[in-house]
Simulated assay, not measured.
Amino acid sequence: MTASPTSRRRRARKSFVERTITGVGAAIEQTVYAETYARQDGFLQRVDPRAKVGLFALALLVTGLVHDLPLLAGLWLGLLGLGIATRLPFRVIAVRTMLGVPLFTGLVALPALFLVDGRSLFTIGPVGSITLTVSDQAVLSVATFLLRVSASVTLAALLVLTTRWADLLKALRIFRVPDVFVIVLGMTYRYVFLLLRLTENLFLGRASRTVGRTSSGEQRRWVGASMGTLMSRSLKMSNDVYAAMVARGFSGDVRTLATFRMRDEDWLFVSLGVALLGLAWLVDLSR
């Protein structure tokens, strides 16, 4: 007896357990994969983490101050080129900036197209008694906002992808970021990774013990029970981790084996970066 096309399509669809396992596994793989980029022998990977953190913080400040559209576009394109020059796949940079920024930031900036005054470019409507007018200043404001966010997100992505997490946290401490913030950030990063692995094992155990299809109500009940189990296990794990750290002499100060040393190339990178950012800011002020 041949199965109907409808039944074949139902069997082809993945259950929520399979989709969750796939999503959690992809998140773990992405985390580990991003760390491999930081271990490559690229341009930014060789730069001292202190130099990158300081220069990128200055670049974020300049990006927030510059209003000239061509300058922002040039800064963003330069960052994309820097990412490609440092052996980062263009697809990785595009996923982190070009896809997320228009989707989320564009939704936030969309109302500004109809609220900012200026010379009218075109009119939408009337829809009932409402007529929406898009002005040139509105388009300019939205484009500036999108470019500014795109450049900022690209800066953050380049810093995270080309710097090992432990080195990044140590560089933050050198810049006098509060120790509590650095410790919480470092523990959260590792704990989220561990929690993802725990979630994946939980769903794998469910999938390996399930024969056939289950009803939607049963799946929802299992998800509710699993959320409580996962919460209880995560709280117990956090207490166990802290107790283990205290037993091994933890006193609030995290130490790493990495030793930072500024080379001539690092000083040259910082000098050129500061000069270019200062020039961009002066050009923006003159316009």
Rank of each mutant, 00 (worst) to 15 (best):
D167Q: 00
A57E: 01
I174P: 02
G224T: 05
R197K: 14
L107S: 08
R9Y: 15
T105I: 11
L58P: 01
A207Y: 11
Y33D: 11
F203Q: 01
V283K: 15
V127A: 09
L202W: 12
I28R: 07
V241P: 00
L161G: 00
L99Y: 14
N239M: 15
P126V: 05
V182E: 04
G125K: 03
G224C: 12
I21D: 03
V241E: 02
L185P: 00
L79G: 01
R287E: 14
A244P: 00
V184W: 01
L75Y: 13
I84V: 10
I28A: 05
T154P: 00
W222C: 06
T259I: 10
R13P: 07
G205W: 06
G25P: 01
V47T: 01
I174M: 07
D240W: 11
T6G: 11
L65I: 13
Y242M: 15
L196Q: 08
R206D: 09
L282F: 14
A156D: 04
V66R: 09
T154L: 02
G23Y: 12
G273C: 02
Q40F: 13
D167V: 02
G224L: 13
L75P: 04
E200F: 14
P126E: 05
R176P: 10
L77Y: 07
A207S: 04
R11G: 10
A109N: 06
S150H: 04
W222G: 06
D240C: 10
R248M: 05
A51T: 07
W222L: 14
T20C: 06
P70F: 05
T133N: 06
L82R: 02
A207K: 10
V108E: 05
S286V: 04
R8I: 15
L71C: 04
D284Q: 08
V211H: 11
L202H: 09
L195I: 07
Q40W: 15
L169R: 06
L147Q: 00
A59Y: 12
F145C: 02
G81A: 06
R176I: 15
Y189Q: 08
L230R: 02
T163S: 09
I130P: 01
A3F: 15
S216H: 14
R173I: 07
E265H: 08
M227F: 11
P5G: 06
L88F: 04
P111Y: 14
L285M: 10
P89H: 03
R221P: 00
L80E: 03
R261P: 08
R164V: 04
V139N: 02
R255L: 11
L77T: 06
G224D: 12
N239V: 13
L272S: 10
T22L: 14
W267Y: 15
R197A: 10
S215L: 03
T20F: 10
T133P: 02
R10M: 15
T2P: 13
T86E: 04
A26I: 08
A280C: 12
A225F: 11
L99E: 13
G106A: 03
A207N: 11
F114K: 00
R119D: 14
L168W: 01
